[in-house]
Design a protein around this nucleic acid. Sequence first.
RNA 1: GGGCCAUUAGCUCAGCUGGUAGAGCAGCGGACUCUUAAUCCGUUGGUCCAAGGUUCGAAUCCUUGAUGGCCCA
Length: 506
Amino acid sequence: MAGDERTAVQTEAQVDENKLIAQRRDKLARLREQGVAFPNDFRRNVVAGELLAEYGEQPAEQLDAVGVRVRVAGRLMTRRVMGKASFAHVQDMSGRIQLYLQRDGLPEGTYEQFKRDWDLGDIVGAEGRLFKTKTGELSVLCDDVRLLTKALRPLPEKFHGLTDQESRYRQRYLDLIMNEASRRTFRTRTRIVQFLRQYLDGRGFLEVETPMMQVIPGGATARPFVTHHNALDMQLFLRIAPELYLKRLVVGGFEKVYEINRNFRNEGLSTRHNPEFTMLEFYEAYADYRDLMDLTEDMLRRLAVEILGTTTLSYQGETYDFGKPFARLTVKESILRFNPSLASADLDDLAAARRVAGSLGIALKPSWGLGKVLIEIFEKTVEGRLADPTFITAYPTEVSPLARRNDADPFVTDRFEFFVGGREIANGFSELNDAEDQADRFRRQVQEKDAGDDEAMHFDADYVRALEHGMPPTAGEGIGIDRLVMLLTDSPSIRDVLLFPHMRPE
RNA sequence: GGGCCAUUAGCUCAGCUGGUAGAGCAGCGGACUCUUAAUCCGUUGGUCCAAGGUUCGAAUCCUUGAUGGCCCA
């Protein structure tokens, strides 16, 4: 970068040039002299994967007898020139197919152009007859080939591909061209989302879209991104969750709704956090948190079978069984289980719990009540160790401002979170539909915000008004799609499952 | 936020206790009509992440910074 101020926008002058690119520009210049250098009149009639599936196993004689003519197109990935004949592989969305080019089988001059002006990485179209090579590889014996798009930049090395993590994230197009594993991950991501849609659609849920730009950022405790609406001259927030809007829809009579979309949280980056991430949230009236745990268990089990063909999931060397019933225990039970030195009484009053937290090195804030202290202890000593699929229930009311209180123990809510491999995947609860209780909870959040907690919630008066019209007893849940995809694709970083993860400017 | 590691040709990587930068692939020139990391002969290509410092001399040692990776909070 020049001595100028750093900008996030790359200018043309900053793009590197080198001899390889200059040579390709010369080749392109020759192409321009010959006519249309970027034609868009070639039409393929088949993709590589279809050909391999249909003809890959056919014997050579049969192919020759039938004489299958094909038109294929794709990126030139390999090239082996042997004098007057050459082999090449082209790659399209479905896979690769080999081309066989003979000087005397192509229009006059074409073969010479192929040798002189075409490079690996160029986009080409080819027409010819299917045949099998001596080694049995299905190939196209070309009687015409055309250069459709000249690539000015060279591809990464053909054997090792592109391995540098940073380049793979910043130049995802190159990663996708070069790495089959990466292509597979993102196809799997799509299949996962498709399955979830199909699962919910099949159970009568209605997919909806709610605002990404909100006047009051609600539905979670997190710092929002702030933006500004010029015409209205007002501050707007990118949403941190769709929750309060989806529940407004339940009030409106859409008793089963879901949304799969982006949330934005103005927090740090890590292997598990991206500023924008995808969440499935769904709400069902006349259901409670236990119904949702059952649904979640069924849905994830079927998802594993759909995606992996098995309920046994292996992630980063560990194995998790989605086939057997998921464990269920309360926050308090789980703390006691993972901290055998603690007794139940240590977690029952604030002073004792603070002593425990203090001995664990947790920095305590004076405003924290017992519930918050318990959750801190839970996060420090339990969360990362919940390896097998586990529902944790009975979250303190203090840390669950939108969840319904438990009838027998109002200190906790009818809420669960779901963990696998030490990671939180889902969060659900019976919804708080008592408008007066909700107003009280908002007031408490506002107090905490005033006391300096910038993650605390705002008071959303319209949401309270909606509840005052009556929301049926309802349960709702959010599932982090990116983390789910990480789990099912054995990806160590959230960046591996985001096509364009957030990166600092180069 | 803290610690550790990495950054060298378009890509993948070497480069030792400091002595003036190398390989493979790609490219370029040549040979080759069944190859598949094609092969064979020849060959071009460098802001060694950046800025300071130490030194006769720095890719190498020191400092600071940038970006990325991993671990911890």
